[in-house]
Nucleic acid binder design. Structure first.
Lengths: 156, 156
DNA sequence: CCGATAAACTTAACATGTTAAGTATCTGGC
DNA sequence: GCCAGATACTTAACATGTTAAGTTTATCGG
């Protein structure tokens, strides 16, 4: 019979050396520390990303918000009404171009943001200490590099 | 008024320097290259992860499969019947302990796996070239380190 | 000015993520 | 042997991811 490298009959990179998989594992490991904290404040990961983006960058339209939060506009269309009903964000149609919906954070939303951000930074500091500042910086550089080279011109 | 660092009134790490966020961005950028390829073969990301895990490591129970694929057992319970109906995997109850469900890949599943794996490795090679072999190795090391230090004993 | 095209959402349909509750099976102490 | 608790999985409910189709508003060429 032929010489086989695995039960699959194909020599493929081990699953543990799949970059998307390792990125996911690392993120999952981190989120296990953040999730209980967010949950305590009644926020999903995605809701927190929206509040954080709006608190940092101010009001913006759906596409910009989606790009910044890495949430598809279709998902935003579905979740924003909930955040609005809870009084954490506001939506209005742009006067210049009525196709645009401008989203902003409310005063109530900012209060929640500050409370969650404070604890969140503490968790982050603990993680940074465990990984090491220098290693963390290198990690960021490599992640930036990955995004850059993969989205290089010519792809789209 | 008080001196403010942003519209949020709180000096927080910029969103772009959130590690979970950057991990997600990098993964998304990569998956934009792999997704069309998987889709062409009628596979979702998750289905591909299951096939790949079974092809590489052989049959295993639901929890082990979930751990290897980073898919929650509840999600597996829902998606495995589809893969089974399509003849790509098989499920059976363990004889030793009837609580366990043993999942394995079929001959038909292996054929599909080999076909997809071949193209997948080509995409991966292109990405590795763009990032650089040395940088990629460092990235893996740092991701491994992150998973290790975050899941250190004492957490659970 | 008008019709065609494009842009920015929204909606819908289906798959998956996430949590809690439920079911079947096993294990250990009595 | 028997029962309380643990284990492995399943089911259910709701939120989000993903794609395609639909709606409204702008823009552009004539």
């Amino acid at each position: 019979m032929t010489d086989r490298k695995s039960s699959s009959g194909l020599a493929m990179r081990p699953f543990a050396r799949s970059l998307p998989m390792q990125l996911m594992r690392a993120r999952e490991a981190l989120m296990q520390e953040f999730r209980p904290h967010l949950r305590k404040h009644g926020l999903s990961e995605q809701q927190w990303r929206v509040l954080r983006a709006l608190a940092e960058a101010g009001s913006m339209d759906i596409n910009a918000l989606g790009e910044m939060c890495q949430i598809h506009p279709a998902s935003l269309s579905r979740m924003l009404p909930n955040l609005e009903d809870e009084g954490r964000i506001e939506r209005r149609t742009s006067r210049d171009d009525q196709r645009y919906v401008i989203v902003s954070i409310t005063a109530k939303g900012k209060v929640l943001f500050r409370r969650v951000a404070k604890e969140s930074e503490q968790i982050y500091a603990s993680i940074e200490q465990r990984i090491g500042s220098r290693e963390l910086k290198t990690l960021y550089d490599l992640l930036d590099r990955t995004v850059r080279v993969v989205q290089a011109p010519g792809i789209r």
